[in-house]
Simulated scan of single mutants.
Amino acid sequence: MNIKAKCTCISMAIILVCAVTSQAQAQICEINLNVRLGLSKDGSLQIDMKDAGIINVCSLSVTSQGTPKEACAGWYSALITLKMAKGRAQFYFNQGEPANNGVSQCNQLGNWTTRAPYFLETIQ
């Protein structure tokens, strides 16, 4: 195996380890769309997380907890569509994110807290 092939293999192994480490810190929590999906007058998006309660996830007015308002608007649009279609969704949280305070289980997110999800996914 030549040097270039060895470097490529090592690089791919490092990427794989980083991806696995990243996923190990992810907390995936289901959203209760039928319980609460709301906006406050300042543009804060509140949702009910299964086993946790109501949390503020982002703002339609300003970047909040690292989530740009444009991403928040996209999430809100997707969640309203899912609510009308009786669909289901879940947010991914990185426990290393300061706003998430090392939360490692969905029921630790807390009621009426502000958290920082990084990914929204529809589920069956």
Rank of each mutant, 00 (worst) to 15 (best):
N101G: 02
G43F: 03
V103T: 15
D48G: 06
T21K: 09
G87Q: 06
N56V: 10
L79E: 03
D51S: 13
G96R: 10
I15R: 10
G102P: 03
E30R: 13
L60F: 01
A5G: 02
S104V: 09
N2P: 08
N101K: 15
G53Q: 09
Y76D: 07
S77N: 07
S61I: 01
W75M: 09
C72N: 03
Q95A: 09
G102V: 06
G96K: 13
L16C: 10
I47W: 05
A24D: 05
T113Y: 02
D51F: 10
Y118Q: 03
F93A: 01
A85K: 13
I80W: 08
P117G: 02
P68L: 04
Q23K: 09
A99N: 07
D48T: 09
I14T: 13
P98W: 06
K83H: 13
C106F: 05
I47H: 07
N2A: 08
A13Y: 11
A73R: 07
S64G: 00
T114D: 01
Y92V: 09
W112P: 01
L16H: 04
L33K: 11
E97H: 15
R36Y: 08
V17M: 12
D42S: 15
C58F: 01
E30C: 07
G96H: 09
Y92T: 12
I55V: 15
T81K: 14
L33G: 10
A24T: 10
K6S: 08
I47D: 06
A116Q: 11
Q65F: 05
R115A: 08
A19D: 02
L39R: 12
T122R: 11
D48I: 00
E97T: 11
A24F: 12
N34T: 08
G87C: 06
I14Q: 11
I55D: 07
E30V: 10
L109V: 04
P117E: 04
R115V: 12
K4R: 12
L82F: 03
C9S: 14
M49L: 13
T114Y: 02
T63G: 03
E121Y: 08
E30G: 01
Y76C: 02
N56R: 14
S61A: 09
S11I: 09
A13W: 11
I14S: 10
W112L: 08
G102N: 04
I10P: 02
C72R: 04
Q27Y: 01
V62W: 05
C7P: 00
Q124D: 11
M49N: 05
G110H: 10
I28P: 00
C18D: 09
Q25Y: 13
S64V: 05
S104E: 11
T21L: 14
Q25G: 07
A89E: 04
M12P: 00
A26Y: 06
L82Y: 03
K6Q: 14
I80N: 13
I10A: 14
K86C: 02
N56Y: 09
G102T: 06
C106P: 06
L60D: 01
C18V: 12
S104D: 11
E30Q: 14
V17P: 00
Q27R: 06
I28C: 00
L109R: 02
C9Q: 15
V35K: 14
F119H: 12
N94C: 08
P68R: 09
N94K: 10
W112H: 13
N107E: 11
Q95K: 15
T8G: 05
I14C: 13
A78W: 00
R115L: 03
L39F: 02
